[in-house]
Structure formats: structure tokens, C-alpha cells
Computed example of a mutant assay.
Amino acid sequence: MKVAFIVWNPFQLIQFEPLAKLCTDPTVILIDKETNAKLFPPGMLKSKHWKTVFVKPAEIPLIDGTHDIIFFQSAFPNIEKIKTTKLVSLQYGLAKERHNYGEWRALADMNLMYGQYSADIVSHYAPSYAVGNLKFDTWGDYTERYADKVQLSKELNLDPSKKTLLYMPTWGELGSFDALLKPIAALQSRYNVLLKMHHNNDAKVPEWLISAKREKIKHIYDGSADQLKLLCASDLIISDFSGAIFDGMFANKPILLYQENSSGKIGVQKFDLESLEFARRNDIGHVCEQADDFERSVDYALEHGAELVEKAQALRSTLFSQPLGKTSAQASIDYAKCLFNNEIPPLTQAQIYVRDTVQRLRTIEPKYNRLTKQVRDMKKPLLKKLLTLKF
């Protein structure tokens, strides 16, 4: 079985790494978006476990049929042109459900999800199975390796006498970085503050690093940092609408959600109030909605940490599955082999109809966007002329 992985940022390759190590001569297909290769740490693309091929978005149709299975995280340019190679989507987050469970899942021949909760939601698009969260396959090793928190504090240059806050905001308008940067920086006299940014900030909003350094944040990590190690060091997870919330939940850490003006963010990055990170927020952790209440909320969440973790257990058990007797990575590869050997049920007729529709829409969408821009550009001089008319 010849396997490839589609990536365009380090976050994706980090998730695929344990899968790649279980494959024979796999290929990492990096979609070349001009500057994104610079985001990968030195040596990541040149691994003994895989070969890396750079492909322009327009060249994606040329890879069809070159591999038996292609794993991907999210819909990529020209995915609708892949007709022969089997496509397997691998869940990478639980937040922003309108995206994570969107119609693009119909483009996959199989969806591999964190747990039955997610598998059930996308099962109408294609055969879908719960395989757990690959990121945490080695969590037990991490907790054992870093059981001595004093030693871990030394490694991370933390003050062992202070509690440690791990702040992981989502990116862009939906994120809390701008609102919380100053308040969280001010807490450094009382707590160790670790800032781990979303991988999209590295590519789309690189100015975040300048801002963080200006506020003298001492411990700054980008999207490719070792999140499991940081989770081991943390006493409280602080986030907003990010999927990092659920990484903290998996690790049994208390969570503080900063969710200011949630209703005003509807539609941003496909967020809505039905999405898990908002709809179940009181089951996830403690909620803060105003920056003025932030420090008090941090103190409260730390003081009631055990209660918050306990309250989250019921939701945690529905979101994450653990395959019996194997890792999530091995379960994913086993399902891929079943797909390759035609042991997975084929798409139903209804699923084929949905896929065909999504493929056509993705083909039409760029043309529609270009036409919309042309119409908008044509309107500008007309509107300018109308505004200058005197009545």
C-alpha cells in the first residue's frame, strides 16, 4: 500500500508523523504556497521516515493515481480533482464544528475521527470510524518522563514555586490574543506564563511575536512547539474558541475559557453558537467574558481545578475513544489497509450524490469569486460618479 500525506504547515506533519513511521516509504506532499516551507523547523521535511515532494496547487491533479491512499487534515486546493487515489481525512480538532463537520468531509472515502461523537456526525458523508487522537498516543510516555515537575520546570526555565498557566489562543478575529496579551503578561509576577500560539498565526499573522516580546512574555512558543511537554508543565489551560481547549481536556487539566462577545463572532471562521466550544462551555471549564474579570477568573479556576476536571469527565468520555490493544496511529493504518483492500463499505448512492455536488461547487466557486470581484470593481467608478452628482 503506497501512502502519501498532504500538508502545508508543520502542525499537519506533526500529526501525521506517527502514521508515516508505520508506513513503508511514504511520501509527504507539501503544497507549495510560495513561503510556507519556511515555517517548517530545520530537518522536519528531510526525514528518514519519508520523502518530501513539493507540489503547486495547480499541480494537485497530477498526483492522482500516484498513491493508493492519501491522508489529509482539511480540504486542499483541487482535492475535487482526485478521482482514483483513495482519500482519508483525519480529524485534527473539535472546535468550530461548522468547519470540522462540514460538507468537505464528503470528499473523503473514509473519515477517521477522535471519538464516536464526531464519527456519528460525519457518517452521513462517508464511512467514518473512531480511532482516538493520534497526538496523544505518547501521552503516557510524556507523563512518566515529566512526572518530576521541579525538573521539568528547570528544563523550561520556570519558577518551580509558581503555578504555570498555558495560554493557547486561536488565531485571527476569533482569538483572544489582542484582548488578553496585556492582562496575561501582567500575571507573570504571580505565575509562570507559557504562550503557545496557533499554527495559523505563524503563517498569517506573524506580527504576534513582536507584540508578545513587546509585552515581555518570557516563555513564547510557536505552532510547532511540543504541546504535550507544555501540557505536562501546566496547572491551568487558558484559551478561547480554540481546539486546544480539548487537548487540555484530554490531558485532564482545568480549563479557563475567555469568550468575550461570543454572539458578535458568529460567522467568523465559521463559528456559531451551536459549536461545541460554546454550547458546552460550562461543561468544559470556567468561563470568563470580560478582561476586567480575567485575573479573578484565573485564581478561581486554579482554586477549583479538581472540580473543573471532574465536571468535564462526562463530556471527555464522549469525545475521545481509545482503540483496544493498539495506538490510534495503528488503528488509522489498519482502517486505511481495509479501505485499500475494499473491506470498507463503498459510498452509498446518497453519499455519491453529495460528493458530486460538493465537487461541482468547488469547481464553480473560484469562477464565482472572480466574477464577484469583477462586478465589485465595476461598481466602484459608478458609485464614485453617483456620489459626485449634484441634485
Rank of each mutant, 00 (worst) to 15 (best):
A225H: 05
I184H: 03
G285H: 01
A4E: 06
K326W: 03
F391R: 14
K216E: 15
T84N: 10
T372A: 14
C23N: 03
T170V: 07
S123H: 13
L30H: 10
I70K: 01
F391E: 08
V3D: 10
M113K: 00
H49R: 05
I69T: 13
S328K: 07
L236I: 05
F250C: 02
G43H: 07
K367V: 15
V193R: 02
E80C: 12
I344N: 01
G264I: 10
V205A: 14
S321M: 06
N78E: 12
Y353F: 13
Q15K: 14
K265D: 02
G172D: 06
N201T: 15
H49V: 12
K81I: 00
Q15N: 14
I63P: 07
F278H: 15
V358W: 12
L302H: 02
E80R: 05
A331N: 07
E34A: 12
L195P: 05
L308K: 00
L324A: 12
K154N: 13
A130L: 08
A4T: 09
P345D: 08
Y258G: 10
V53E: 09
P160R: 00
P61V: 02
S176R: 08
S263T: 13
L187E: 09
F71I: 05
A225T: 03
L236V: 07
Y92T: 15
K81T: 15
F136D: 01
N133S: 11
T35W: 07
